[in-house]
């Protein structure tokens, strides 16, 4: 009765779950099937505790996975009840995972690939950096954060290629937005592809820059998520489309989380988003 995707629901055991900086944690889990099946840019929904409190699983992008060791790693920030509960889970405990989900980054092309990460958006880029290195291609990384403490796992990135760092307060790297070193880099050198994850203002600025510069760019997006399977249409993001409105809402969980920057609309006209019609109920 069960079909192939049912195997994405699996029980993992926690190997370690430790603070990385302030309210940011790094969790490593033993999950052989997931580690073998995962691709960079995919995500996993984590049931932080059994039962209904909380009821929904929490989506985390894969920070790293190792098929041989059978392990996966996530970095998460404590932003609410679910992630707070997760900080109390300890090594040896079992935890239910659902994944890998989503499309992941497309790494078919590009001999020199740029990674651009902001804040927690740094997390999924390490899996991409490791894969790009494995494929024998060049990786150049640009990371930005509020402060130096939030420039996560920079040593791991530095081991794989050139690394440029920025912070808002200048406590590490340049006191600048992460797009600054990227622009400087592009004055002299070329990137065939950019992969990015981070806060919306960063992605918006990067999109503009990439679209104007003609550099194919993939963005990993985040949205409040329900099911993870695509049935609830909860995690909608506006994507350019041939509709009367000029866009359509795609599902971050099922159609993404990675989209081409040229297709992503960061804001839609007010007249279209204005409320009207069937605004609640069984929708």
């Amino acid at each position: 009765m069960l079909r192939e995707n049912a195997g994405k629901l699996q029980v993992a055991s926690i190997v370690k779950n430790e603070p990385l900086a302030h309210d940011v944690y790094h969790i490593t889990l033993s999950a052989p099937k997931l580690a073998a099946d995962a691709r960079p840019g995919q995500f996993v929904m984590v049931k932080v505790a059994p039962g209904l409190e909380p009821a929904l699983r929490r989506p985390f992008s894969l920070h790293r996975f190792d098929g041989e060791a059978g392990q996966v790693e996530f970095i998460y920030q404590v932003v609410g009840r679910g992630t707070d509960i997760l900080t109390n889970r300890v090594a040896g405990e079992e935890i239910e995972l659902f994944g890998p989900l989503g499309n992941g980054f497309c790494l078919e092309k590009g001999s020199r690939i740029g990674l651009v990460g902001g804040g927690m958006g740094i997390a999924p880029l390490l899996a991409a950096a490791e894969e790009i290195s494995r494929l024998g291609r060049e990786v150049v990384t640009f990371l930005g954060a509020k402060t130096g403490d939030y420039l996560l796992t920079t040593k791991d990135f530095a081991a794989l290629g050139p690394l440029y760092l920025t912070t808002d307060d200048g406590s590490a790297g340049d006191k600048a937005l992460v797009t600054k070193p990227l622009l400087d880099y592009l004055e002299n050198k070329k990137l065939d592809l950019i992969l990015a994850c981070g806060p919306t203002p960063m992605l918006r600025a990067l999109s503009k820059l990439a679209n104007e510069g003609g550099i194919p760019t993939q963005l990993s997006l985040e949205e409040r998520m329900g099911c993870g399977t695509g049935v609830c249409l909860g995690c909608a993001t506006a994507i350019r489309a041939d509709t009367p409105e000029g866009y359509t809402y795609k599902r971050v969980c099922h159609d993404g989380p990675v989209f081409w920057a040229r297709d992503v609309l960061f804001s839609v006209p007010d007249k279209i988003t204005a409320k009207g019609g069937c605004d609640h109920g069984q929708g």
């Binding site: 009821a55 949205e223 998520m225 249409l233 995690c235 993001t237 809402y249 279209i272 988003t273 929708g283």
Partner: peptide, 11 residues
């Protein structure tokens, strides 16, 4: 119907 603007879901 294009649907409502996000966020569309809250726990």
């Amino acid at each position: 119907r294009i649907g409502n603007p996000p966020p569309r879901i809250a726990e």
